[in-house]
Design a protein around this nucleic acid. Sequence first.
DNA 1: CGACGGGTTGAGCCAGCTCAATGGGCGTGG
DNA 2: CCACGCCCATTGAGCTGGCTCAACCCGTCG
Lengths: 240, 240
Amino acid sequence: MPISFLARKLQHGANLVDSDVDRIDQIVGEPRDVLAGQDLFLHGDHSAFVHVMNSGTACRYKMLPDGSRAIVALMLPGDFCDLHISILAEMDHSMGAVSDCTISRISSDELDRLLDAHPRIKRACIWSNLVDEAILREWLVNIGRRSSDRRLAHLFCELYLRLNAVGLTEDHTFHVPLTQPILADLLGITPVHVQRTLASLRRSGLVSVQGGYVRIPDFAVLEELAGFDRTYLHLPDMTG
Amino acid sequence: MPISFLARKLQHGANLVDSDVDRIDQIVGEPRDVLAGQDLFLHGDHSAFVHVMNSGTACRYKMLPDGSRAIVALMLPGDFCDLHISILAEMDHSMGAVSDCTISRISSDELDRLLDAHPRIKRACIWSNLVDEAILREWLVNIGRRSSDRRLAHLFCELYLRLNAVGLTEDHTFHVPLTQPILADLLGITPVHVQRTLASLRRSGLVSVQGGYVRIPDFAVLEELAGFDRTYLHLPDMTG
DNA sequence: CGACGGGTTGAGCCAGCTCAATGGGCGTGG
DNA sequence: CCACGCCCATTGAGCTGGCTCAACCCGTCG
């Protein structure tokens, strides 16, 4: 019995019972393939669907007047892409696939009915939303205040814990196909500087990056460097 | 018949009818005084109440290991401080009054009942939440990518429109008692550099700041400098 | 096999930082 | 009523993390 990544994630936000999990799994439609680089919606569009990540990595981004791209959120398996977004007439940002993804659609009405009928699921979705907001706040601090090495370290810490929460880490390692230009758009530094920063973290033995696999030999040390405080992810206490 | 700032704000998010506005006004309790510098809750607390700004300015902030403060959100009259926040066991940030404020409390249960019974009000609150998130994304871009003068200009543009939306601007001018150290915590630059940047904007005649009053003689010019795109505030089109 | 995109490295530059000092407004206590 | 302390605003001078420009290497793909 396969449990969707969405259900797996939401379990951290509320004490879901088996029937809740079943209901969530039922509502998540068949995932569709989205190729790396493809956009799901663009700034100015009206988006009527709710999407849920199934595999791969997608991002929210904004284009700047000088043509550069600022990534303002990363969507990993189990993440809602755009809960409630149909309320807005016009999107204020774009969303695109960073790597090849599979993404499910949920009917907005069907989801609303589910949430109204099942308080635990509703609670879990509100939790998910609060966590997304908390991540944005933490990114604001990360981008605004930390030096480039701490910034990168912080991102890796977050990715590790978020992927760990849906069972996508193994042996201190996770898979995210982030190229240096993408890391640059994420962290607000230049690709050249990403390279130097990454090299420095590697030299210190804090992370190893190879072929899209990131390994964090000693999480505590990286956490210390980054000034990482996992509170904002609001995950139940797991020593992992 | 006084309309609360909350109702005034929510009117932008849904087509509220008079009875909706009345219901919102009824639920907003008597505002309590909060002195500048006082905290509403701290990182690690559990917060059980929903607060609504009535007057003054408050902020969400995080303290950094080096003792400096990063402000991650500004709350203006009509803003919810912590909708749904009681779901989280532990706050990931603190909230404090920037200036002397008056803030109302709403019972969380009472609010939930109101939202369940009145879809238009519910829609307006979800809208408000989506806008808060959009502001965070835009701040992320602002802090991460723009030079200090554009950054400051962008903040002023946003404050002008947000205050304008609740009727708190007059003659191109609004009142927000932001000291240079507070602007520094908001923008992620040093107070010394805030001073230089502010002086430069003043010299160019783009803004004048005096005694907590900010005047923007020509909004279009400031908008242009800031690269400001008001889409993210999701306000109905008003030529203001 | 040429084009293209990513990764790597070097060299010089600059926006914003640090350190430092001065003046003004205001509340507090003598 | 004055003196003191405190915080904010302002200005100068030198420093530096991350930027720009510019190569070069490599693997992949048409």
